[in-house]
Structure formats: structure tokens, C-alpha cells
């Protein structure tokens, strides 16, 4: 493993984008930072600035109003970058999908992977902090192999 790969794997800086979720995943991400899980052991730190971040954690169905902001935030991140979709809503729309299979709800801008490329999916409603940290490490491994 070269210096480049090693550096990228060792220091994934994370940015949390809340896109019309119910907060459940958000507080589990906050819980993943707490002393019980402490991802700083392996160098994961939460940075609230997309310009500084390597990995974006996206949560929630993306409301139509949110789509341009999510795209913009993704563009603001310098390459290489990775995206982790957290929770059922970000992956499929989850409980906020209407029953009648006539497509998404009237405010849903689509699952995250319709808007920006997603590298890692972490399912659950909400996923446990362990799963979120695992997703971040998997994203860091993907990141380290990028050009």
C-alpha cells in the first residue's frame, strides 16, 4: 500500500448531510461519535464543511426542494470523494413511499442514488452506530483505491 492509499484510508473526514430524514439516522450518527463508539480511534472525524470532507453521509428521502442543495454540496467536495447512503429512506424511500406503487410521494426527490453516485449503502431504520462506522470504513477503502 502506497503512501497515498494509506493516507486516504487512515484519515476519512466525514460530512453529514441531512436530507429530509426523520432525524433518527442523524442522532445515530451523533451517537456513533460518542465515547462508546469513538471513531476517532481510527481517524474518523466529523467536519461540518463539505470543502474539507472526504466522505458524505446522506440521510433521508431527498425532498424535491433539497435536490439542488444536495447536488451543490456534492460538487463542493474536492475529489476523491465517496458517498454513504444511511438508512432505508436514503436507499429506497422507506416508510415515506406511498403504498400504491404509483411512484414516489409528491415531495420525494428520489432516493439518493438518483441524484448523486452512492458508494456504500447502510440499511436500517435507523442503522446502528456500529453499522454506520463500518460503512464509513468501507467507503474509506473505496476512496483509497480512487485516482
Amino acid at each position: 500500500m502506497g503512501l497515498k492509499q494509506k493516507a486516504r484510508l487512515y484519515s476519512p473526514w466525514v460530512f453529514h448531510a441531512h436530507c429530509s430524514g426523520c432525524n433518527g439516522c442523524g442522532i445515530e450518527i451523533a451517537a456513533a461519535l460518542n465515547p462508546r463508539y469513538d471513531p476517532e480511534r481510527i481517524g474518523v472525524t466529523l467536519h461540518n464543511n463539505p470543502r474539507h470532507a472526504d466522505i458524505m453521509l446522506v440521510e433521508g428521502i431527498v425532498a424535491k426542494q433539497h435536490v439542488p442543495f444536495l447536488k451543490r454540496t456534492y460538487d463542493q467536495m474536492p475529489t476523491p470523494k465517496a458517498v454513504v447512503a444511511i438508512g432505508s429512506c436514503a436507499i429506497t424511500g422507506g416508510v415515506f413511499k406511498p403504498d400504491d406503487d404509483k411512484g414516489p410521494s409528491y415531495t420525494q426527490g428520489g432516493p439518493v442514488d438518483r441524484i448523486i453516485p452512492v458508494d456504500v449503502y447502510v440499511p436500517g431504520c435507523p442503522p446502528k452506530p456500529e453499522a454506520i462506522i463500518d460503512g464509513v470504513i468501507k467507503a474509506a477503502i473505496i476512496l483509497s483505491k480512487r485516482e
Partner: peptide, 10 residues
């Protein structure tokens, strides 16, 4: 490592 990572970023 943080600094090295930044050095290899856009």
C-alpha cells in the same frame, strides 16, 4: 496522515 491525505486531494 491527515496532512498527507490533504496533500493527495484536489
Amino acid at each position: 496522515w491527515d496532512i498527507m491525505k490533504l496533500m493527495y486531494k484536489q
